[in-house]
Design a protein around this nucleic acid. Structure first.
Lengths: 206, 206
DNA sequence: CCGTCATTCATACGTTCGTTTGAATCATAC
DNA sequence: GTATGATTCAAACGAACGTATGAATGACGG
């Protein structure tokens, strides 16, 4: 239990405040205060506020990508033709697992992803990206193989639907108390059911 | 074709910039510049930046709510037991119709809604709300009647899934050019198919 | 023509922002 | 113990922020 170094405390505080107030709404002063660090710490450890944001996003997204990738590997090692349900679970599951650790940390990460999905040009358009895109492309191919009747465009639309549902899920967990009958495990199951049915829908055409 | 008054030009510019950069990211100066108005115009016409935001949100959300409400009225006038597909279409359809008018205006509105979904405490927590909530509750009841096996919590989860898919849809229409094979009409149909299947999925339990 | 009201204008105020700087502090190895 | 490199600190910078104010401008009925 070594006391957390300033760098990680800055990342924690920034993750919290970026998710809660957005990039522009979270000031460096608020972040360093929450982290118990000096105002200049952000400049020293990350260079700038924008680079702090990309570091935060990277830390959130990376384990999700890794889990998604590993899940697909395991699936494809077993059979070349995974079921839609299995693909949905492997793709959407990590989004819930990684977001469900600490009850509040989960909502935080979710809100952050939500903001990323919604921010067109915000300060992060140049993203590290390679891993992210590779994983997405692999799932695109796997889904295309499992749903051969679907056009590429409609498939892409549906995959983004998965992201949307997963991201929006726990947004209001932390607004007021969580609704009584909800656990994160339940939300995960609901999402898998919901999304598997959605992905398996017959193609619309054009 | 009377030239638009300053008030509406401010609303247009603010809608644009709030959606694009968020509340904190869009400065009053940027808004008034884009609107071709004076810096003090926001203060004069709306009182403050926060009140301008609520005016913008109101203008975007109101016609959507009206269309959703009218659609449900028409459905219930025909039969007391509408199909899930019909409910999905009546609920999600207006989200696409209202967002599809101008190719860019649609993406704008969508992004704005996205931001509202994702912003936990941002400057709009006190919302006008009554109409909004009434419509949502009515659909909740109608869906509950069409899907009696679903628990209230899971139903609520699914309805928010509809919102998520609709909101996230056109977010990147305006990032780079729209993907080649996509029209807004196609996206609407895709969404209805996708969401009808999702809503109709068997209950997960618990 | 003039008075009245609504709107627009230039300008200023105080605050907060992101960033930078140079000195102070700490840890570690010699 | 002292030198060295990494980290933290208090302080300051100019810029941009939201808001308020009082004078100018416009439209319009008397």
């Amino acid at each position: 239990m070594t006391p957390p170094d300033t760098r990680t405390q800055l990342l924690d505080a920034a993750e919290h405040l970026f998710a809660e107030r957005g990039f522009h709404g979270a000031s460096i002063r608020a972040i360093t205060d929450l982290a118990g660090a000096n105002l200049a710490a952000v400049g020293y450890h990350f260079g700038s506020k924008a680079q702090l944001l990309t570091a935060v996003v990277l830390r959130v997204v990376e384990p999700i990508n890794a889990a998604q990738s590993a899940g697909l590997d395991k699936l494809l090692a077993r059979t070349p033709d995974p079921e839609v349900t299995e693909l949905v679970e492997a793709f959407a599951g990590p989004l819930f697992d990684e977001m469900a650790t600490a009850d509040e940390g989960g909502a935080r990460k979710s809100r952050l992803i939500m903001r990323i999905l919604g921010d067109p040009a915000e300060e992060m358009r140049e993203w590290p990206g390679p891993a992210e895109d590779t994983v997405r492309d692999r799932y695109l191919a796997a889904f295309a193989h499992a749903l051969p009747a679907l056009s590429a465009n409609e498939l892409w639309f549906r995959i983004r639907g998965i992201l949307a549902v997963a991201a929006v899920d726990r947004v209001d967990v932390h607004n007021g108390q969580p609704p009584p009958g909800r656990s994160s495990a339940a939300a995960r199951r609901w999402a898998i059911t919901f999304l598997t049915a959605a992905m398996s829908a017959p193609p619309t055409g054009t």
